[in-house]
Amino acid sequence: MPKLFPGYKDEIKKKIANEAFAIFLEKGFEKTMMDDIAARLGVTKPALYRYYKNKEELFIASMGDTMLGGYRMIFATSFASDDPITGAGNFFDALLVISSKYSVIRKDLEYIISRNPSLHQEIAGMYGESLVVMRDVFQEHKRKGKIHTTMEETDLAFLCGVVAQGLINNVDMGLDPAEAKRLWLLCFTKLSDAG
């Protein structure tokens, strides 16, 4: 079996996290074993423990790398147009797709956090990074005169994040996605004074 070389620790950790994330998506957290991840990578299980102390740490790392990167991409591409309302609609559509794709993992994350409250800080850090991405996009739209709110961009990003996540959670509980999008666009328009 190939060895995982310490000189390339960051690259190796990223490769492990990416492979682990794919397995977590297939099986969920509880059914995924470190043996599964090691087998997919062609290494021994002890080799994985040199980089991650346990499955929970690997789960959080894999989720952070993959989901945060995906979130950055959809936010940047959704709001690439000069029309922030169109961007907000594209963003919400992409969130619905991601929410559906990652629903099992989201439930696993809630379970892990309930068992290990120290992970709250790591999750808060990931959430903070996503807010920075939103804030930066809103600052650019404000600079271009497309968003007219007097609200600070950081506050706008936070409120938009809360509203979007709340609506996504309601879709998970049965709210019609088209109605959720309508409410999102209404709220975004009012908060950002766009249009």
Rank of each mutant, 00 (worst) to 15 (best):
F59G: 02
I60Q: 02
I60L: 10
I60D: 04
I60P: 03
S62L: 03
M63Q: 12
M63P: 00
M63T: 13
G64E: 07
G64D: 12
G64K: 06
D65C: 08
D65V: 14
D65A: 07
T66H: 06
M67N: 08
M67A: 10
L68S: 08
G69E: 13
G70I: 01
G70Q: 02
G70Y: 11
Y71T: 11
R72D: 09
R72Y: 11
R72H: 15
M73P: 11
I74H: 02
F75G: 12
F75Q: 12
F75S: 14
A76D: 10
A76W: 10
A76E: 15
T77M: 07
S78L: 05
F79K: 05
F79R: 01
D82T: 10
P84D: 02
I85F: 03
T86E: 09
T86P: 06
T86R: 13
A88E: 02
G89A: 04
G89N: 06
N90Q: 12
F91A: 12
L95K: 07
L95R: 09
L95S: 14
L95T: 05
I98N: 11
S99F: 08
S99G: 13
S100T: 10
S100E: 10
K101M: 13
K101V: 11
S103W: 05
V104Y: 10
V104R: 15
V104F: 13
I105C: 15
R106F: 07
K107L: 06
D108T: 12
E110C: 09
Y111G: 03
Y111V: 11
Y111Q: 10
I112C: 06
I113W: 04
